[in-house]
């Protein structure tokens, strides 16, 4: 039984069901598994993460399906209960560390607030936990950092803090939405390594959103390929890199620079493949409507 099981999830613009954003998405993440969610920009990767965490924009509504987390369909829970449940067992590692910390609040409370307010820890325990985690993500002088404001810290430092904060409550599932995209290339590798290291130590399941197959090959065990809100392929990383099952996946893989040859020329996804994939999505839409 998977820890997270998304079944036939569909979403569309509010009041305009024909403008589909997610198309019968099904996806499983087992306990302790790291699943990559790949696709080009605008494919709906972030929307899946937001649907799980309950942070979809007001202009988007879920039109069908289930999000079963630890045996309970989140979409059937009353909002307040759902929120608390998410806060207790899930966490988010956001994309942009520069905007994901509240500028008017010190770092310490931004890590401990969930522990104190939602999980009802004592303040002293929460602060000790925050300090330990900051040390765990290799931040020197955690006490000073906890008293700092976000603008006093570098982007890489802030992403480390956000990672520490995500792991603070020992969540069972973390949604990492392009956690390295906004960082310098040199910092990207360190942060990726840090996430892998923390994941291994805590055994947390991660839904790893990225457009970079190179990242997937490094940290994930399985992956789902998304195009226009539809899952084209759901497979293990080993099988995928050995032999992608979908023409679009093959083209995507060909478009990724090899790590052995990072400067090698990129072959963009051919138009013919895009057109065929579009037609496939449209076909599937028609099928669900009859």
């Amino acid at each position: 039984m998977s820890f997270l099981s998304i079944r036939n999830l569909s979403a569309a613009l509010k009041g305009r069901p024909e403008d589909r954003i997610l198309r019968n998405v099904s996806l499983n993440v087992a306990a302790g598994e790291v699943r990559g969610l790949v696709g080009e920009s605008g494919a709906g990767k972030s929307m899946i993460g937001k649907a799980i965490l309950g942070t979809l924009p007001l202009s988007v509504e879920i039109t069908g399906g289930q999000i079963i987390l630890d045996g309970t369909d989140l979409l059937t829970l009353p909002p307040a209960q759902r929120r608390t449940r998410i806060g207790q067992i899930c966490a988010l590692i956001p994309q942009d560390p520069l905007t994901a910390l509240n500028p008017s609040r010190r770092i310490g409370p931004q890590i401990t607030n969930r522990l104190v307010d939602i999980l009802h820890w004592s303040r002293a325990d929460a602060e000790k936990r925050a300090r330990d985690l900051l040390a765990e993500v290799h931040i020197p002088d955690p006490d000073r950092v906890m008293r700092s404001y976000p603008h006093e810290l570098s982007g890489g430092m802030r992403q480390r803090i956000l990672i520490a904060s995500a792991f603070a409550a020992e969540p069972k599932l973390i949604v990492a939405d392009e956690p390295t995209t906004a960082l310098d290339v040199t910092v990207q590798k360190q942060i990726l390594k840090l996430i892998a290291e923390m994941q291994a130590r805590h055994g947390t399941a991660i839904l790893f959103v990225t457009h970079d197959l190179g990242v997937v090959s490094k940290v994930c065990q399985s992956l789902s390929v998304l195009y226009a809100g539809k899952v084209l392929e759901d497979t293990t990383v080993r099988d995928f890199f050995a032999a992608p099952g979908h023409a679009y996946s093959r083209a995507l893989l060909a478009a990724t620079p090899k790590y052995t040859d990072p400067d090698g020329s990129l072959t963009p996804v051919p138009d013919a493949v895009i057109a065929a994939t579009r037609a496939e999505v449209a076909d599937a839409d028609r099928m669900t409507h009859v």
């Binding site: 307040a80 966490a91 988010l92 994901a100 910390l101 307010d117």
Partner: peptide
Amino acid sequence: LDYVTLARTKGYG
């Protein structure tokens, strides 16, 4: 903004 979204995922109403 992202930090508000992040607070939501922590369970805040």
